[in-house]
Write a protein that binds this DNA or RNA. Structure first.
Lengths: 140, 140
DNA sequence: ATTCCCTGTAACTATAATGATGACAACTTA
DNA sequence: TAAGTTGTCATCATTATAGTTACAGGGAAT
C-alpha cells in the first residue's frame, strides 16, 4: 500500500481506546482489530501521544485518551498523523521564472489550494471522535 | 518526487493555453515553462482532453481550451487528473470483523471522510481558471 | 510526394512514501 | 528476577509518481 491510511487507523485506535476504557488493551490487541502489525499501531500511537491526544507509558499497556472524546475533533486526529508539510496538494517546483505564467503560478495556486484545504479542515473540525464512536456502536 | 503535482501542472498548462491563445504552443514549449519533460506535459494534456477540457489534434501543435476559461472550475481540473478511485483519504482494509469497532469502522469513516472531501470539492468548484489567470497576470 | 515537426503512447528507470516485519533496549509489575 | 509491554531502529516489499528514451502515426509546408 502506498496510500496513506494512518488517518483511518488513528481514528480506529482512538475508538478502541474509548470503547475499552479501563481495560488496558495492548498494541497487539489493537493490531488484531485493525489487522496490521503491532509496531504500526505503536508508531501511530506515538504520533497521537506527541499530539497530546492520548497518554501512554513505556512498558505498560492501556493507553488512555488525554481529553474527553467529545473534545477530540477529526481535524486533531488528521493533523496528528500528517507529515510536517501539511499541504493537501503539491505544487511543482522550479517553474520557469522567465515565463509570466511560470513565474507566478506557484503563489497563485498556493492561495487557491489553501482555500480548498481550509474548507476541508473546517469540515473535519466540525466532527468529533464522539460522533464517530456513536455512529460505530449504532451500527452494531 | 512522489507527491502528486499533476493538479498544479494541469492548472499551469491551462493557464498557458489561455494566455497564448492563437499561438499554437508545443508540448516542448509548455514543458519549458513548467520545467519538466514534454512527455509529462503530453500525458497530462491527454487527461485534460479525455475530460473534455481541451481539444488536441495528433501531430499538430496548439491545443485549445474546449470551454470558455471562466467555465472551467478547479474541481474540473482536479477531477481530470485524479486517479479512478477519487477518495481523498484512504481507509485500511480488512479490519477484524469479530470486533465491534473493526466491523463498522470502515463505513463510519467513509461517511465522515466523504463529508470532508465534499467540502473541499465545493470550494474547488467555486474557483475558475479565469480567476487563476487573472491573479496570475496581476502579479506580473 | 517528401520532409520535417509534432502528438500520443509504450516501456523503462529513479525516487519517495508507506506499511510490514524482525530485533532489541528500557520500563513496569507481579 | 521473570514476564510482558512499549518505544524505536533498521530493513524490505509494494506502490505512485515523475523523468526519460524511443517510436509509430498524423499534419503541414515546400
Amino acid at each position: 500500500m502506498a496510500a496513506n491510511s494512518r488517518f483511518a487507523v488513528a481514528a480506529h485506535i482512538l475508538s478502541l481506546l474509548h470503547v475499552n476504557e479501563g481495560s488496558r488493551i495492548t498494541s497487539e490487541y489493537i493490531a488484531g482489530s485493525v489487522n496490521t502489525n503491532p509496531v504500526v499501531v505503536r508508531r501511530i500511537m506515538g504520533m497521537l501521544a506527541k499530539a497530546g491526544l492520548v497518554r501512554t507509558s513505556p512498558g505498560v499497556a492501556g493507553a488512555s485518551l488525554a481529553r474527553p472524546i467529545g473534545e477530540i475533533t477529526l481535524l486533531d486526529v488528521y493533523r496528528a498523523v500528517q507529515a510536517e508539510d501539511g499541504a493537501l496538494f503539491a505544487i511543482h517546483e522550479h517553474p520557469n521564472p522567465d515565463c509570466p505564467v511560470g513565474r507566478n503560478i506557484q503563489s497563485t495556486l498556493e492561495a487557491s489550494f489553501l482555500r480548498a484545504q481550509l474548507a476541508m479542515e473546517r469540515e473535519l473540525a466540525g466532527m468529533t471522535m464522539e460522533e464517530v464512536v456513536l455512529d460505530l456502536v449504532g451500527r452494531t
